[in-house]
Write a protein that binds this DNA or RNA. Structure first.
Length: 348
DNA sequence: ACTCGGCACCTGACCGCTTC
DNA sequence: GAAGCGGTCAGGTGCCGAGT
């Protein structure tokens, strides 16, 4: 029986209580485990009675996408000529969602390394972009992880209200990110912004050609009141061209447990797939830019991360197939996502 | 399989400053 | 003076590796 962290904590507490009451350690361990297993079984049965998960994000057919692209481009042209005002870098979306450009989350640009390990400077790295058309992202700068990705997307979100630059106080950032508001989190936020300033990348994919972004944040000012004012390279806008982005509900990431970087990476990776195909385990390790000492350690992390995505109702289920003829590299990771709604249904 | 201890991180209470 | 916002800090919680 696989126990959640809460159930494990309950088991520990019960074990200690038993010891305090003079129960022998072996007997205390047995009753604590039995009690935790009962709780887990009850929780599992309750879960089975819950309603089916709601669709995680919108889906549109290729025809609907083509119409929307045309309308969006026409709108952009009209508003630019009519008002001369700057348009936000990101497309229009609900406050409850985050817009995810596919290339950024289908590779290991924002990695999932152990948060306790020190960050390395990456002089030159080439990340393969997973997808039918493939492509690469060449990166130079400090090692980026999931916290950097969260800060970058959040900064882009702030940019919507003041097109051209994003201004926000540290507190506004921390509240939006769902991080603690203590000194450590402020330092972490400051460090993330610094890394994004030093991040140079070149994206080479079929739809964009060769797109150079000399810095994810071209300019960062700390204002008198402590607010950050950040400017972006205009190439960032092109990441959202051609509707190659996904609107993902924020609630999934908010529900994930802390220090679940692999779960966060998988959440964004699979959010860009309507019907995910089985992926070789070895490919997934390379894609997410993890550096596991042992492959089975990654498998354990992956199992926990996929379990979390099921718990937050982003996935319906998952499976890791066995090795074929004992050969390494033949294990496949399969996931099942809930049914998507069509774009028109979602608008209602 | 289980316990333990160190560590990282979060929560909530509290305080100071600014604005109305 | 009240309300809102931003910042600090102590205590609590959970994770993870080491040990048994």
């Amino acid at each position: 029986m696989k126990l959640t962290s809460a159930e494990k904590a309950e088991r520990r507490t019960h074990f200690r209580q038993q010891l305090e009451q003079g129960v022998e350690p072996r007997e205390a361990a047995r009753t604590a485990t039995e009690r935790a297993n009962n709780a887990a079984t009850a929780s599992m049965l309750m879960g089975a009675l819950e309603k089916l998960p709601q669709p995680p994000d919108w889906y549109e057919s290729p025809e609907e996408r083509a119409v929307r692209t045309e309308m969006t481009n026409a709108d952009k042209g009209m508003s630019a000529t009519a008002t001369g005002a700057r348009e936000p870098l990101t497309p229009d979306h609900r406050e409850t969602t985050v817009v995810v450009p596919h290339e950024f989350v289908r590779c290991g640009l924002f990695g999932v390394a152990d948060p306790k390990s020190s960050r390395q400077h990456v002089p030159h790295a080439v990340f393969e972009v997973y997808g039918t058309n493939g492509g690469t992202i060449t990166y130079c700068g400090p090692e980026l992880r999931q916290d950097d990705r969260q800060v970058f997307f959040e900064a882009l979100n702030f940019e919507r209200s003041t097109p051209g630059s994003a201004t926000a106080t540290p507190n506004q950032f921390l509240v939006k990110l769902g991080w603690s508001r203590n000194t450590e989190s402020r330092k972490k936020l400051h460090a993330c912004i610094g890394r994004l300033q030093d991040a140079q990348l070149t994206i080479e994919v079929r739809r964009l050609g060769r797109l150079v972004i000399p810095s994810l944040l071209t300019h960062v000012d700390v204002l008198d009141d402590g607010s950050y004012r950040m400017k972006f390279h205009d190439s960032v806008r092109r990441l959202y061209d051609d509707n190659c982005y996904t609107c993902l509900r924020r609630e999934y990431e908010q529900k994930l447990e802390r220090r679940s970087d692999l779960a966060r990476w998988l959440l964004l990776f699979y959010s860009t797939h309507q019907t995910p195909r089985p992926i070789p385990l070895a490919t997934l390790i390379e894609l997410c830019n993890d550096a596991p000492e042992k492959k089975y350690a990654f498998k354990d992390k992956l199992t926990a991360a996929l379990g979390q995505l099921v718990r937050v109702k982003f996935l319906l289920g998952w499976n890791i197939t066995r090795k074929v003829d004992g050969k390494s590299g033949t294990e496949m990771v399969e996931v099942k996502r809930p049914r998507m709604v069509r774009f028109e249904d979602q608008k209602q």
